[in-house]
Simulated assay, not measured.
Amino acid sequence: MKQDVFITCAVTGAGDGPKKNPNVPVTPEQIAADVVAVAEAGAAIAHIHVRDTVTTEGSRDTALYAEVMERVRDAGTDIIINFTAGMGGDLEVGTEDPKQFGAATDLVSQAERVVHIDALRPDVCTLDCGTYNMADGNVIYVSTPDQIREGARMIRGFGVKPELEVFDLGHLGLVLRLIDEGAFEGPAMVQFCLGVGSGAPATPGALKAMSDALGGRDVVWSAFGVGRMQLPMVAQAALLGGNVRVGLEDNIWLSKGVPATNVDLVNRARTIVESMGGRVQSVQATRDELGLGGRQ
């Protein structure tokens, strides 16, 4: 077990959570307030999407990201800011003509996916490391090997640390090749995303297989499960030597029928880690472990 475990809180995501749980933040003010609150509860990293303030749908608007960052920093918190760079990968294959894409398609170039990263230079941004079926139906998330290599090159050029989002063992295989090729400044930061679409399931066996596959490389890893498997995966990740992620992006319930808040979920994660004999790692210790240096 990892003795000092950092907690990431994914505060809002891009899904339909606000329609099911009013605690899911939507506006930049609400998102920033939750980031500050989870920092006070013990989260070292905030993983941040932004949303259209009218429709509540996920957005790639740089101005919204800028407002969130400004509000968080104005509040004086040193939490590590991790912006998503995964928006713009959705493709809905046509039912009758596969080349006639459906209304759910939001597919842009890798360069367009990181416009806000270049503009704002957060501490960390995500790099989704593979294509997968998002759910039943015709929608897939597109991230090809060439796109991943291009994203790694651009993000490194920005001076931002990529969090390598891995949804299955096949994705991890490419990540390991890129690590061995020297694509990332060490240590590599890997996030195992379990129970998402047709990716790896949120089970102890799947997580152990993925963590074992790292093979002693210079990697700092974390993991999360979606829905009801969020908190069980906290315990499993800590036991296997990793770090943990919780938050309303991945799970909107504290228990059956009880809407969660981001602070609730961070508190639960903290309780799990500490009850197993671990300690929740501070922001500065997490910066040191990831090689981030001082605040951006």
Rank of each mutant, 00 (worst) to 15 (best):
I272E: 13
P28F: 07
H47I: 03
A46L: 00
D146T: 12
D136A: 15
E92R: 14
V72H: 06
G94C: 10
M87Q: 13
A183E: 07
Q296F: 12
V11T: 00
M276Y: 04
V108C: 13
A200D: 09
I179S: 04
T261F: 11
G291I: 09
E150V: 12
E67D: 15
P259C: 11
A237F: 10
D106W: 08
V26P: 08
I48E: 02
V139G: 06
I81H: 09
A37Y: 06
K2T: 11
W221T: 10
R217C: 12
K256M: 08
T126P: 06
D74S: 09
M1T: 13
K20N: 09
T261W: 01
V263G: 10
F224G: 07
S211R: 06
A104W: 12
E92P: 07
V160Y: 02
A75Q: 01
E150A: 14
A260S: 14
T56N: 11
R270N: 01
D250T: 10
G205N: 08
M87E: 15
L194W: 05
I148H: 12
N251A: 14
I155G: 05
G215M: 02
I7P: 06
G215E: 05
A135V: 01
D128T: 15
G86F: 04
G89F: 07
V283Q: 02
R245G: 01
T55I: 03
G157M: 05
F101S: 03
S211G: 02
H116C: 02
F101M: 03
R228S: 14
V139R: 14
D16G: 15
E150H: 11
D4P: 01
A103Y: 01
V108P: 13
V266R: 11
Q284C: 00
I140H: 03
S59D: 05
P25K: 07
R149V: 15
V246E: 09
A39E: 15
D250R: 06
I140Y: 06
A119C: 06
T271I: 11
P22N: 14
R268N: 08
S222N: 12
D288S: 12
G195A: 11
V244S: 05
D250L: 05
E40F: 03
D118I: 04
L64F: 04
H47E: 04
T84P: 15
G216S: 06
R228D: 04
P25V: 11
P162R: 06
N21A: 10
G151R: 09
A41H: 00
G277R: 02
L214W: 07
I272G: 05
V35N: 11
L214Q: 10
N251E: 08
A66L: 04
N23Y: 09
M154W: 09
G216Q: 10
T55Y: 07
N262H: 12
P145T: 07
P204K: 11
V142K: 03
I140T: 07
D118C: 07
Y141V: 02
A103I: 08
G199R: 02
A119G: 01
P28E: 03
I81P: 06
A202M: 03
V190Y: 07
W221M: 05
D250Y: 04
F83C: 14
E181M: 04
E249S: 07
T56A: 13
R245A: 09
L265Y: 02
A285P: 00
N267Q: 13
L172G: 00
A269Q: 00
T286S: 08
M210H: 00
V38D: 10
I7W: 00
G205V: 04
E150K: 14
P28C: 10
K20L: 14
